[in-house]
Amino acid sequence: MVIYVFDGSFEGFLTAIYESYYNKEKPDKIVAMDDYVENLIDRPIFIETDEIKSDKVYAGIKNKISTNALKKVYHVFLSEVMEAPTVIYHYLRLGFKIGNKVDLNLMDDWVLRMDKINQQVASEKHRMLGLLRFQLVENDLYYAPLAPDHNIIALMANHFAQRMSDQKWMIHDTKRCIAVVYDLKEWIITPIDLPAPPVGKEEYLYQQLWKEYYQSIAIKERRNPRLQKRCMPVRYWSFLTEKK
């Protein structure tokens, strides 16, 4: 099998798509460097990230297929599911052939697979908009750690930049060691490696109040832990103030 290996960046991936159209050897799979395991049967082709090529593909998806498709491609890419680059590749092949009608092809396995991953990313993002918990730490900074399944913090940033526009905040993906930082004007995404900062006395009071509220609002006669866990999977609990 021919395998395209790219550096893991979105630009690198788009370059791989570009190459797949101009290289005689078509890929059976596209994988990120970190997911690539060398073996005797597969033949890897290492893709060198090229901004001009990736820009062309970016514009191509937008103009020849649709903005919606571009958004979908980006979301599925951020899923960090191992097969995602390959799924997107097949989806784009079809997309460049038939244009903006590609999303109507619900019977096509790749389109369907694309939809499914996209859905997973979108729903985790939506869920985390609610489950994220800020703590007030030193320097008036509101700090929120999380470890999502997919790489979603960039997708969450605008929401909080609009909503919490008058407070400094940081969303820290502890799994990927990256953070979105907002300084009252704009947000940036940056690699980061730091332990959770300590909290002050005021913060402790509001955490107490929130825990108390959380206990009081439940109706004992209707206890339903299964439903609770389905809506709010246990893997997120370690970051939730009320579940600590």
């Binding site: 908009l129 609610g130 489950l131 609002i217 439940a218 299964r226 609770q228 709010m232």
Partner: peptide, 15 residues
């Protein structure tokens, strides 16, 4: 769309 922020022990969402 509305956003749920937590789910209490009775499984109802807290928004």
């Amino acid at each position: 769309s509305g956003i749920c922020h937590s789910w209490s022990d009775d499984g109802r969402c807290i928004s």
